[in-house]
Design a protein around this nucleic acid. Structure first.
Length: 514
RNA sequence: GCUCCAGUGGAGUAGCGGCCAAACUCACGGCCCUCUCACGGCCGAGCCCCCGGUUCGAAUCCGGGCUGGAGCACCA
């Protein structure tokens, strides 16, 4: 007996048991793994983006997964901007809102939003407390020198300074009396720790460049990620942290601080890096920024850019991204996100409600270019359905006056017929399409193909795709639609209508996916 | 060099000692449906890194290899 037979048999004997099985299957279907020691209502997580750029597709994974866990455990979700490096990872003032927009688009709402650059006094207070505990010391070793000592498991001469001196020097750091590189505050860990990455790491350093936020422009002494993030996670009651394998050592580093303070470290899940297929542009904030600045991309929402804003402009629903991200799970190995799974998830969500339309592309690489043929003896309009699965939504009306445009790859040989979808059968005479009427049987059992078409007074259209722009002609009825509406261009794919009458063309649309 | 982590079909995930010659999602091939190459239906191909060990029994545990990734920043 195979599974289906067993099931049928079970349905006869115990129908209620089948329902139970269905319910079980529903529950554990492609869910994220359980969070360790998580309790309903007691989970608090955070996303901690660096606002140095808007989000690329990879960034969306954090929000997607954290948001999904929040919903699953009825927990909370904090967005904390880790903007503590005004120089190498200089914040982009527009990125704060862009990131919050991206989270909203993905379908989540943070319970709390905070900026690390508003909290430096809190970090200073904890640094002082740590100094009191004997857990930190100011150090003026040049980086290279310290690195050498550290790699040999040797302490530097500053390690045993008395707390008063450390306090004085740290206050001088806070007051901005040093320049970059002159003084740091280190956490005293274990200089002989077998993992060199954990030995006496830097907690605060001097940065000469002012922070772009007015509120923080006078700060010169900035905490490093491991200190700032460690303190904030505890102070904000984070119970579970998800972060990349590049931060594998962070928890171990921060554990030293937690030990000094007697805090309990949150649960941590490490995951690998994501790559995304189908894009020519690397999934990297700096690369995308450079291309945008150089004008090679029109902006962060250029369809060729692997960014959240781009997917949004193409009409892909945030939930579809979340679906695909959740399917990637949280394994520690690096993963490749196939855009096709995002597309499949999106199609699931939009196919049923999206109106159909015709677009004849005028592009040698796609369809071979538009060609015009006059119609001889045909009806004065075509009437394809708005949606093939929903007759009740009615038919489109496409008036045919003089001629029609089709893609040349669809053009039949002279003497052969083709079925203009929603219009009827025509024979190609070389110069024209002669209407032959015919029964639909010639399509069902015969040699006649069904193709899309538009009348010769169609809307000039630019379709922006990941592979560049394609021009073409869309059926006139689309002029009645609104920007932001989605359509499926039959035999081409789904697209989002972006703008009308742009000055260069009647319609501007963004291609989503097949 | 030191340290840490991982290795299941084309991509991703699940399974974590017997129910597993392995399940699911996407992709792929074929067929059916169809006035779309969408949607839907059916069928198919394809996977436990290697070698030892423990065990009645290992994808699952242990050891060693190999391969890949990550950290050793006054970046996040």
């Amino acid at each position: 007996m195979d599974a289906a037979e067993k099931r049928d048999r079970l349905a006869e004997l115990a129908p209620e048991r089948v329902k139970e099985l269905d319910a079980e299957e529903e529950e554990d279907e492609h869910d994220l793994p359980d969070l360790p020691t998580a309790e309903e209502g007691e989970v608090r997580m955070r996303v901690a983006p660096n606002p140095n750029s808007p989000w690329h597709v990879g960034h969306a994974r954090m929000a997607a997964v954290v948001g999904t866990y929040k919903d699953r455990y009825d927990g909370e979700f904090l967005c904390r901007f880790d903007d503590t490096d005004p120089e190498t990872k200089r914040p982009d003032l527009d990125a704060y809102d862009a990131i919050l927009d991206a989270i909203d688009y993905l379908g989540f709402e943070p319970d709390d939003v905070m900026l690390a650059s508003d909290r430096v006094d809190i970090y200073y207070d904890h640094a002082r407390e740590l100094i009191d505990e004997g857990g930190a010391y100011t150090c003026s070793c040049p980086g290279e020198e310290f690195s050498e000592l550290k790699n040999n498991a040797d302490a530097c001469p500053h390690r045993d300074k008395d707390p008063e001196t450390v306090h004085e020097e740290f206050s001088a750091m806070v007051d901005g009396e040093y320049s970059a590189g002159e003084m740091v505050l280190r956490v005293k860990t274990d200089i002989e720790h077998k993992n060199p990455a954990l030995r006496d790491w830097v907690a605060f350093r001097m940065v000469d460049t002012p922070h772009p936020r007015e509120e923080a422009e006078d700060v010169r002494c900035w905490p490093m990620l491991d200190f700032q993030s460690g303190v904030d996670d505890h102070l904000t009651g984070i119970t579970h942290i998800i972060r990349g394998i590049d931060l594998q050592d962070s928890a171990k580093r921060q554990q030293f601080v937690y030990d000094y303070f007697g805090w309990e470290y949150p649960e941590v899940v490490h995951w690998g890096h994501v790559q995304v297929d189908e894009y020519d542009v690397e999934l990297s904030s700096s690369t995308i920024s450079e291309l945008v600045e150089a004008g090679e991309l029109d902006g962060w929402d250029d369809p060729r850019a692997p960014t959240v804003a781009s997917l949004r402009r193409r009409g892909i629903r945030g939930e579809a991204i979340v679906d695909a991200m959740v399917e990637l799970g949280t394994s520690t190995s690096n993963v490749d996100l196939a855009m096709s799974s995002v597309y499949a998830a999106n199609r699931d969500r939009i196919d049923d409600e999206t109106d159909r339309a015709f677009l004849v592309r005028d592009d040698p690489a796609h369809g071979g270019g538009a060609v015009e043929r006059s119609i001889v003896d045909g009806p004065d309009a075509g009437h394809p359905p708005v949606h093939p699965s929903h007759e009740d939504r009615g038919e489109r009306e496409i008036p045919v006056d003089g001629g029609v445009l089709v893609e040349s790859d669809d053009l039949p040989e002279e003497g052969d017929r083709v079925w203009l979808k929603g219009y009827g059968c025509v024979e190609h005479t070389g110069e024209a399409f002669e209407y032959t009427g015919d029964d639909i049987e010639v399509v069902k059992d015969g040699p006649v193909d069904v193709i899309h078409w538009v009348p010769d007074d169609a809307l000039s259209t630019r379709l922006r795709t990941m592979d560049g722009d394609v021009s073409g002609y869309a059926e006139p009825g689309l002029a009645e639609y609104d920007a932001d509406d989605l359509v499926q261009f039959e035999r081409i794919g789904f697209a989002r209508l972006d703008a009308f009458d742009t000055g260069t063309e009647d319609l501007l649309a963004y291609y989503a996916h097949p």
